[in-house]
Amino acid sequence: MDKTKRRTLKVLGGTLGATAFAYALEPLTAWTKEQSLDEFLQRHYKELSKSELEAVLRRIEQKTRETYGVDVHVTDLHPQEGVEFGYALNLSVCIGCRKCAEACHKENNHDRATNNSYIRVLEMDQGTFDLEKGTTTYDHAVPAPGKYYLPVQCQQCDNAPCVKVCPVQATWKERDGIVVVDYNWCIGCRYCEAACPYHARRFNWQKPQVPAAELNPDQGYLSNRVRPQGVVEKCTFCLHRTRAGRLPACLEACPTGARVFGNLLDPDSEIRWVLANKRVFVLKEELGTRPRFFYFFDT
């Protein structure tokens, strides 16, 4: 083969290869349009100055307006002095109606199609605490005879495995005890999802789909704002509500009052009364995660 022929072939091959490569990457053009430079360069939540954070909040509101045509209010409420949150759940009273899961679904702007919720309710056989015998997909009138119900959500562990494993500190424990995620910093490696012993974390396998009319406009940067695709999220005890003094959505929705929420540092709070007077226990205590979510049965 003479040299010119060889060169022609090479050029042809190179051109073909480059074209094929560009063609293979074609789906990315739509994706890159959605990304903004501001978002790409945004620093970690803890490093943002007050004004930078303000700009970020307004940008998120603006983006939500563009996408949904809805005015939402994104806040960044601070943890309160002298407040550490705790949650307790009375298993004798819970009837397994999943109203809490539904309230979470609506409050936190979860993807509608998957019925996503931070709470999973297990129907358990009376007389066992073996989770293997539980089921989450029960679909009959509740409470069913011989069963009890075990709702599980983020236990806001003091020794949280999810926080430990995150390679980029995208998730951390706030001083009021809530484990949060910076959705704009998470790289989506899902190591935290593997580490969590309570199935408390969810990954946005795609952009959550919520009809504009159903969007909850009361949003928090670290909690229920519409999450981007490809990041991990979790229960935050509705911190956009609870840091404003309000009760979490799941508690308000509970028809039997099985749920108790309050300030662990306030000796007169309901949660402290439960801890002092009920025989409380935590899930998977042997793992040493030190949850702030307690369960009890009525005596």
């Binding site: 790409f40 390679p167 980029v168 500190q169 995208a170 989506g188 490809g230």
Partner: peptide, 28 residues
């Protein structure tokens, strides 16, 4: 690892000194 990431565009968050490197706590 790159193809498993939900947000490969945020790869720079893992670069020590530039992002936030959770060393030595995170095994990753």
């Amino acid at each position: 690892i790159v193809v498993d990431m939900g947000r490969p565009d945020r790869m720079w968050h893992v670069i020590p000194g530039v992002g936030r490197f959770n060393w030595p706590i995170s095994m990753l």
